[in-house]
Amino acid sequence: MNTNSPFFLDEILFVVLPYIALVIFLLVSIRRYLTQSFTFSSLSSQFLENQQHFWGLVPFHYGIIAIVTGHLIGFLIPREVLWWNSYPLRLYVLEISAFIFGVLTLVGLTSIIIRRLTTPKIKMVSSTADWILFGIFIVQIVSGLSVAVFHSWGSSWFASSAVPYLWSLATLSPDISYITAMPWMVKLHIVCAYVMIAFFPFTRLVHALVVPNPYLWRKTQVVRWYGAWKLKRAS
């Protein structure tokens, strides 16, 4: 194991923290779903303010969902990503579109925050958890964008260095040698992601866990029967 950093800082941040974050995420989400399902809601505030709402929520979600999906793809199929990036043109396309989605997220987040600060009604429905969350998001998005600018071709080195590290965590044989030498901005981005995962189930972010997919396949109308009648109907 690498013991260069003081107090095993790297080990704490890149081995202990991710496991703790993941355990918190899973346990709290499941518990909250089972015992407090009433609190699972997007907590939409469109009803209280309908104009600025569009300029915040839409770019933010389009951006963040693309970015999260991008990270997931890199994590799941790193070799294909590297293959894609083997032509410079394709690399540029990928990098630029990822950057655009990042900027979209930041723009959306900024207008979400401004809206929450300046509209009295929206301020009333903003919780402390919301503000902490926005703080974490800012660090995460700004660090992500700076990495993209100052440490170019992230899509390639993410696939070649960060992904093996993540897989080493996933396979319970943590190996931080892949990332100990990374610039501090990258490290910040990784640590902040863990913090976000740990904080996730305590916030409104749980709405992303209950995204409805059966809607597209289910019948138009929904009818529920009392138990007894259902049996009778089936027989």
């Binding site: 409805p212 809607y215 929904v222 009818v223 029967w225 009392y226 009648w229």
Partner: peptide, 14 residues
């Protein structure tokens, strides 16, 4: 009912 993505709205059968 038709619009609810979660299927939270329903008509009681009885």
């Amino acid at each position: 009912v038709a619009s609810c993505p979660s299927g939270a709205l329903y008509k009681r059968g009885e």
